[in-house]
Design a protein around this nucleic acid. Sequence first.
RNA 1: GCGCUCAUAGCUCAACGGAUAGAGCACUUGACUACGGAUCAAGAGGUUGCAGGUUCGAAUCCUGCUGAGCGCACCA
Length: 577
Amino acid sequence: MPAVPSLAATVHAGLQQAIGAALPDAPDCDPQLRRSDRADFQVNGLLAAAKALGANPRELAERVCAELSSRSAELAGWEVSGPGFLNLTLADSALLAQAEARLADDRLGIGQLPGAGVTVLDYSQPNIAKEMHVGHLRSTVIGDALARILSFGGERVVRRNHLGDWGTQFGMLIEYRDEFGADGADVASLDALYKTSRRHFEADPEFAERARRRVVALQAGDPPTVAAWQQIVDESKRYFEAVYQRLDVLLEDADAVGESHYNPMLADVCAELEASGVAVRSQGALCVFFDGILNPDGDPVPLIVRKKDGGYGYAASDLAAVRERVATLGADRLLYVVDSRQALHFRMVFETARRAGWLPPEVTAAHVPFGMVLGPDGRPFKTRAGGTVRLVDLLDEAVDRAAAVIAEKSPDLAPEQLAERAAQVGIGALKYADLSNARTRDYVFDLARMVSLTGDTGVYLQYAHARIHSILRKAPADAGYLAHPEVALTPAERSLALLLDECGAALAAVAESREPHRLCTYLYQLAVSFSAFYEHAPVLKAPDAATRENRLLLCRLTARTLALGLGLLGMAAPEQL
RNA sequence: GCGCUCAUAGCUCAACGGAUAGAGCACUUGACUACGGAUCAAGAGGUUGCAGGUUCGAAUCCUGCUGAGCGCACCA
């Protein structure tokens, strides 16, 4: 079924025609159609056009009005206001027809994104042999939402989880375990082992030397060393898998393509960079330099592709990944959901890849940066003891808190149902709290607020959704699919219907800006609008059959829209809480 | 020193260059014989860090200043 154009799009098209007819001197003027608190829409662009034409803006608006009346059947009212705004009011019948058409469509009438292609989306990036911490939450949750939203828009999304599974730390780890016989059977003990071996590495030069030789052995494929490494990798992957399952994100084993995957390509990457002159040797290292990037001494700062000891830096594997993602995966777009501190690194990597010809002009590459998670003191979020906060501990606490509230509200729930809903509510609250903040800003982590279950939280959206299903369970199964366009709408019904028409625009804005918080804002507004509707417009006890049908229609479409949006954020939308 | 990001209500955050800067939390006051009160209705709370500039119109764009965070040669 073809997409259902939004009323905003239809009105916009009508406006452009009317402007073309009324203002032959300024046919390309952007009407700047926006939602308004004085009408359904307001047209802002005529003020600018009047300025450009040296005309009276109100008079101009009157002329556009006159042309508009014959071109936009969905409009019920229009008036010139203030200095030259044009306020537009939609016909109730148009709002109802729109809702009916959307409800009849699998995709709620939402079309595909223009220019869809292949996006390689890099996110989560935990490190082998280390715990996932609160910093991984953002990358994982934002990346997951973007993967879902871009896919829904028709983009072919290739997920890449760039695991930190290679490097000197494995020499330390394996050597230490061999020498001291520590087990490292699970990730918690591996994490501890990692810290111990690091202290050893720094304190004991002879151990450090043996650890370095282990790295060489690993790179050379020494069987016992590789086996030890593989065992550590496998254990860590099992752990990540369990976390992803709890978080309900899309990442799976096939998406995990870590640094080790690129290791065999690094020599070639360096050779090619050096041969083409993109990289040069400096102080023994292979480097790429850039205009205007200087260190505190005023010397140029390089991207170090290969260190002076012959080892490869993370720039090398990032470059190999760019090359492979474009050449082999056929990427049209590369996205990296990585914290904003890496901005300079990605700028240099992309620039290097451009110079090397691995990133052709028609392929875009973008760092999708996000801010840090702060503690209540406004400093980077730490435990009371000053350590990093384990992600699994946060998940446990969020779910526990949700379970306590649910048990209080629904004391008769079976234990397994309680556990399921606590997971849906607790994890959803955590994800929503993260996603609803503007991506690039740091935010203060406050679990009590996230799971407080009042106000602008994930639960509010889930509760609105569940309340609709409570109505729908009591309604006739075949009612509420067809509109009665002759019935006038109340204010609560109108604002709900208007919002229901804007889901596609909200999704397009997220896809374009890669800012999931715009979808959160939209869904929250939708839930608020529904709650007001719920309060002021009885559905099952509506005054007459036609009104009840219209309200049921709005209920059905609101439930579908909330479920779609929550799903695209990676949140559960249970029918009962 | 250079660069990046940011500064909005007591707190946590919104606001594609548009009219009166919006929410939530906390605070005050109302609404449960309920289509689920995990809710709703209302009140109070602001010189959008400061100073200029551009514009018919600036929280938003530009410049300067103040303040904060982050990054800047061999960890990833």
